[in-house]
Design a protein around this nucleic acid. Structure first.
Lengths: 334, 334
DNA sequence: AAAAATTAAGCAAACGTTTTCAGAATTTTT
DNA sequence: AAAAATTCTGAAAACGTTTGCTTAATTTTT
């Protein structure tokens, strides 16, 4: 594997000159530069960024921490991050924490010891304290979806707004007046923000009493199981915390010959692949996961340029996907 | 950020001694070792593997190249890889090639320049020639699902065997005698191996004539579109190239009141999440994606130990998932 | 108790770069 | 044509480690 000295020897020149030539710096004649570049090609030289980073303190590496890469939500964010960082010439350290706090902590240390320049953090568990290790070393952090610390920028999907949009559609276009909202854990940020959006919107229409809440854990099976209980309340509409739960409810209805949207309307959240695939396509809220990753990466890159950046907060607006499961197909589709 | 010299100074000792102490090498007294370890803690020292790698030629980094991380198949493999490599103390460079050959090539070069110790390669496009850059630098490669070169080990899901198992079930348990196989691109390895499995098994039962092939591109929409054409042939069973296509066919049947499995049986391949979720759960073949990743990583680690490893081939046996869509629920379920 | 063997620690070079400083060569200005 | 300014190049130190060699100190053997 050829190095800078080999090139220097080949050109009868000092390694410093080679370095300058290859990095496009001033202070090397055009003739010499050409000669060096040619020699580099001939030796199929590729520079060792690790060695360079010792001096430059610029490793070109960025950490990407996710709770679980098999979750499509995180995978899409990762893809957005990857695309932007790759174009900027950075490489990505993938840290799949498997939703385990200890693993996450271990990864934080590893990222530090490898001298990453920045970190994109998707974490449900990390606290401001946990980030201290990055602050100590001047490693920039951008959080996604979870506002962990005032010291770092956060990029979020605006769950509140998405919920408001959906509720508005249900009230205005579908004339929903009796709603059961099947929500997840009451201290999950998703539940909190979405539920607030639903309630506020119904309240704004003077329909405070129209919405009743049920709490489950957010899985397909739980959705299936809760369906009869929700239906027992005789709602005109069921709002699920997410599409997976909605799909569970949908399966129950289908098996018990309850027609959607005629007997009851059904809405989800997230716009997962399957939402559009079922026999009555699901009205839901699309999250711009890929763009989320892109924005986070772009923000991080900007903060790396900046000597003393001020943390900001970016909220991405979600997109209401009106499909058949709440009726009123024509209204919003374009 | 404390380094080895700071510790040396603190303990009134030479950096070399600190290095030896911290790496648990011989030639440093127990007392001195304790003193050094304590000092290291006090300074919250963390070793710089980048600097060390210059000398040791052991970067602790491994490249993971995938066509598209948002595809759950690859994401699961990635997770298996991640888990094993993490436990072995390696870090992962994520390279999402976005199914673009140029990007893949660029990543290959980047991985080389960063001196990764090995690469786990999931590629649909790479050729033996493309791998030369790794061979030149003595970077070990393990391929997943695609046998690119005799010089490297490959870990695969055995599509042929999975197809045989499914066909056997259809013939023996479900008494299928007139089958339409809706397959993907005829030069895709998945189509080739699975179709071979189906045909061989039917032939083994003297049912050579029972299977008819249709070719589409492997998407949900194409599945939906091909459904009436397949049904027109009046089969007792439709085998789809994968679950996504099967889901498309399923949606068509449901909307046209064609009962599964009573009017026609339907089988998929892959066992994606949704397969178990639809109203008539889909009989399919489960791919052990996570294990695949684990095996690939384990194999790579072994080859890194070995001075001159011989490439091997590992075939993972898939698992038939008997569900309702082909009838005969009782037979295989346990 | 002396000789031999072992162990502990230091010194300095090395890994592949970048960068500061200084001197030499060239160009521009007067 | 001399002086000044500019451009080119080299020497050497630095980044944070590891490691081969050497010497000093300790332990074991005779």
């Amino acid at each position: 594997m050829a190095n800078i000295k080999d090139i220097a020897k080949m050109c009868g020149v000092n390694p410093a000159t080679v370095s300058r030539a290859l990095n496009g710096q001033k202070g090397v004649s055009a003739a010499m530069r050409d000669k060096i570049v040619l020699a580099a090609q001939k030796l199929s030289y590729s520079k060792n960024p690790l060695a360079a980073s010792l001096i430059t303190r610029h490793s070109g590496m960025i950490g990407l921490v996710v709770p679980d890469i098999t979750n499509p939500y995180y995978a899409y964010v990762a893809k957005g991050v990857s695309q932007v960082l790759d174009e900027a010439g950075y490489v990505i350290f993938l840290c799949d924490c498997d939703r385990k706090k200890e693993l996450e902590k271990k990864y934080f240390e590893k990222l530090c010891s490898y001298r990453v320049e920045g970190v994109i953090l998707l974490s449900l568990t990390a606290t401001e304290e946990d980030l201290q290790i990055f602050f100590d070393q001047g490693i920039r952090v951008v959080c996604v979806d979870n506002h962990i610390s005032k010291k770092v920028s956060t990029v979020c999907n605006d769950n509140y707004q998405g919920a408001c949009d959906l509720a508005e559609h249900l009230i205005t276009d579908c004339h929903s007046r009796k709603v059961v909202a099947v929500m997840g854990s009451p201290d999950a940020m998703t539940t909190i923000n979405r539920l607030r959006g639903y309630k506020d919107t119904f309240a704004a229409h003077g329909l405070d009493k129209s919405i009743e809440v049920m709490t489950i854990s957010s899985t397909y099976e739980e959705g299936y199981k809760v369906a009869p209980l929700a239906l027992a309340k005789n709602p005109d509409t069921i709002i699920a915390i997410n599409d997976t739960v909605a799909l569970g409810i949908f399966a129950y209805c289908q098996q018990h010959n309850i027609k959607i949207p005629d007997d009851v309307r059904l809405a989800g959240y997230d716009d997962i692949e399957e939402a559009a695939m079922i026999s009555v396509p699901l009205t839901t809220v699309h999250q711009r996961k890929y763009v989320l990753g892109q924005k986070a990466a772009t923000q991080l890159l900007q903060e790396l340029e900046d000597k003393d950046p001020t943390p900001i907060r970016i909220e991405l607006l979600p997109k209401l996907m009106v499909r058949a499961s709440c009726g009123e197909l024509s209204a919003h589709n374009s």
